[in-house]
């Protein structure tokens, strides 16, 4: 590069790589809020976002699925409880449990849908302080061998947005012990526990590592100028991870 060229503040163009052909589905339910942000994050990571409608039952040959945040069905009954029985969820549950092990990420309300679906153990109840909370939150990556975390260093601390009212992760002691012993805590809260979650758990994975759910929002921390502290892009690694996973690049 010659001295007269502009210095690299950041290269925000979409990279053209072998991963660019990947198709990542983003599911929309009635009341979903963050599907557009999730689709944008998928695009910024270099893949094609494919909209999936909850009432359809065609997975459209996607390579992975993101279940985004929001308030599907207004959180009526329990957060995620009604969405869990959508036709699209039947397909996703089957594909996640199949030999092909479709990678599935649930963010916030998506995490709640995954626990209601029994793809992930435990459940979420109201924050211990009963308030809706929106803030930048530091997380530690406790397992960097899943389909959605392999581009982070083990123990790496990242900052993404946290925003929820029903974010207190609960499970019985036996389940919590097993999650910790098997390395299935994917993300944990650092600095303080914002909602009373057991064992500071912010996100977990299934045993196979293809299904991950977390309460905070990596898709809101993917673009300089809009993420935490106006610069943070720590969430992009989640989407880059699944692309790496899809081309067999597990490190």
């Amino acid at each position: 590069m010659s001295a007269t060229e502009l210095p690299l503040i950041g290269d925000y163009s979409t990279p053209v790589t072998a991963l660019s052909g990947a198709r990542i589905g983003v599911v929309t339910f009635p009341g979903t809020l963050d599907d557009r942000d999730a689709a944008r994050a998928v695009g910024l990571a270099g893949a094609e976002a494919v909209s999936l409608w909850h009432a359809d039952s065609d997975l459209a040959d996607v390579d992975a699925v993101v279940i985004p945040g929001g308030f599907s069905y207004g959180d009526y009954l329990r957060a995620g409880a009604i969405s869990r029985f959508a036709p699209m969820m039947d397909k996703i549950i089957d594909a996640a449990n199949s030999d092909a092990k479709l990678p599935v990420l649930g963010i916030c309300n998506g995490f709640q849908i995954l626990t209601e679906s029994h793809l992930l153990p435990g459940s979420m109840i109201k924050n211990d302080h009963l308030k809706f909370l929106c803030r930048d939150q530091v997380l530690r990556v406790d397992n960097n061998s899943t389909a959605w975390t392999n581009q982070y260093a083990q123990g790496e601390e990242i900052t993404v947005v946290l925003k929820n009212q029903d974010g207190q992760y609960v499970a019985d002691e036996k389940t919590l012990d097993a999650l910790e012993a098997e390395g299935r805590v994917a993300f944990s809260y650092v600095g303080w526990n914002p909602n009373g979650s057991r064992r500071n758990i912010a996100g977990i994975t299934n045993a196979a590592g293809n299904v991950v759910g977390l309460m905070p929002h990596p898709e809101h921390a993917v673009e300089a100028g809009f993420g935490p502290d106006h610069t943070g892009t720590d969430g992009l690694g989640v989407f880059a991870s699944v692309l790496t996973h899809l081309v067999g690049g597990q490190k």
Binding site: L77, R78, A81, F85, T115, E116, P121, G122, S123, I125, V170, A171, D172
Partner: peptide, 8 residues
């Protein structure tokens, strides 16, 4: 199956 979540 629907009205309650046996986890909680």
């Amino acid at each position: 199956r629907l009205l309650s979540n046996p986890v909680i």
